[in-house]
Amino acid sequence: MQIFVKTLTGKTITSEVEPSDTIENVKAKIQDKEGIPPDQQRLIFAGKQLEDGRTLSDYNIQKESTLHLVLR
């Protein structure tokens, strides 16, 4: 499924993921596309910071959901 990751600069990254993918996994995909190390990434969805060990389905993230990427 496709999800969108919006950066603070307003850029939107499209990523191909599975509901069973972990947040860590998603951060790795963002690193592949943007070159941002996962340890600098914080992903936010519905006002919550997403934890690395959890999966997209844990957070009820569905296709075409938009996550927000904040850098630390």
Rank of each mutant, 00 (worst) to 15 (best):
M1Q: 03
M1H: 04
M1Y: 14
Q2V: 15
Q2D: 05
Q2T: 15
Q2P: 07
I3K: 01
I3S: 01
I3M: 02
F4Q: 05
F4T: 06
F4I: 07
F4W: 07
V5R: 00
V5Q: 01
V5G: 01
V5N: 01
V5T: 03
K6Q: 10
K6S: 06
K6M: 10
K6V: 14
T7N: 05
T7V: 09
T7L: 15
T7W: 14
T7I: 13
L8V: 13
L8P: 15
L8Y: 13
L8R: 12
L8G: 10
T9P: 04
T9G: 13
T9W: 15
T9L: 11
T9Q: 12
T9N: 13
T9S: 13
T9R: 11
G10D: 04
G10W: 04
G10Y: 04
G10L: 03
K11A: 08
K11N: 07
K11H: 11
T12V: 14
T12L: 13
T12I: 15
T12A: 04
I13Y: 10
I13H: 04
I13L: 09
T14G: 04
T14M: 12
T14R: 10
T14H: 07
S15T: 15
S15Y: 15
S15K: 05
S15W: 15
S15D: 04
S15V: 15
S15R: 07
S15M: 15
E16H: 11
E16K: 09
E16R: 10
E16N: 11
V17W: 05
V17N: 03
V17M: 05
E18G: 08
P19I: 08
P19T: 07
P19Y: 07
S20I: 06
S20M: 10
D21Q: 05
D21W: 13
D21C: 05
T22H: 04
T22F: 08
T22N: 04
I23C: 02
I23F: 02
I23P: 02
I23K: 00
I23N: 01
E24R: 14
E24F: 15
E24K: 12
E24Y: 15
E24I: 11
N25C: 10
N25S: 15
V26S: 00
V26I: 11
V26N: 00
K27T: 03
K27L: 11
K27Q: 03
K27W: 04
K27N: 01
K27R: 05
K27P: 01
A28Q: 13
A28S: 11
K29E: 04
K29F: 11
I30F: 03
I30C: 01
I30D: 00
I30L: 08
Q31E: 09
Q31A: 14
Q31F: 15
Q31I: 06
Q31M: 13
D32P: 03
D32T: 11
D32L: 14
D32G: 10
D32Y: 10
K33I: 14
K33W: 08
K33H: 10
K33F: 08
K33Q: 13
K33V: 12
E34M: 15
E34V: 15
E34R: 05
E34H: 11
E34W: 15
E34S: 14
E34I: 15
G35W: 03
G35H: 07
G35C: 05
G35F: 04
G35L: 05
G35V: 03
I36Q: 03
I36E: 02
I36P: 05
I36V: 08
I36T: 07
P37V: 05
P37A: 09
P37S: 09
P37N: 07
P37Q: 07
P37F: 06
P37D: 08
P38K: 15
P38G: 09
P38E: 08
P38Q: 14
P38T: 15
D39A: 12
D39P: 07
Q40A: 10
Q40E: 10
Q40P: 02
Q41A: 07
Q41N: 03
R42V: 15
R42C: 15
R42E: 12
R42H: 12
L43K: 01
L43A: 01
L43W: 01
L43G: 00
L43M: 04
I44L: 12
I44A: 05
I44D: 03
I44N: 05
I44G: 02
F45P: 00
F45E: 00
A46T: 05
A46C: 10
A46K: 14
A46H: 13
G47I: 02
G47V: 02
G47E: 04
G47P: 00
G47F: 05
G47K: 05
K48F: 10
K48C: 08
K48I: 14
Q49I: 15
Q49M: 13
Q49F: 14
Q49K: 09
Q49N: 12
L50M: 08
E51R: 09
E51C: 10
E51Y: 07
E51K: 09
D52N: 10
D52F: 04
R54W: 10
R54S: 07
R54V: 06
T55Q: 07
T55W: 03
T55L: 08
L56Y: 02
L56V: 09
S57E: 11
S57V: 07
S57P: 02
S57H: 10
D58W: 13
D58A: 05
D58E: 11
Y59Q: 03
Y59N: 01
Y59R: 01
Y59C: 01
Y59P: 00
N60Y: 06
N60I: 03
N60Q: 08
I61F: 02
I61W: 01
I61Y: 00
Q62T: 13
Q62L: 10
K63Y: 07
K63Q: 12
E64C: 11
E64A: 10
E64L: 11
E64P: 05
E64T: 06
E64F: 14
E64R: 08
S65R: 03
S65G: 05
S65K: 04
S65F: 09
S65I: 04
S65P: 02
T66N: 04
L67D: 00
L67C: 15
L67A: 01
H68A: 06
H68D: 07
L69N: 01
L69M: 08
L69I: 05
V70K: 08
V70H: 09
V70G: 05
L71I: 12
L71F: 09
L71S: 08
L71R: 08
L71V: 12
L71G: 06
R72D: 10
R72V: 14
R72L: 14
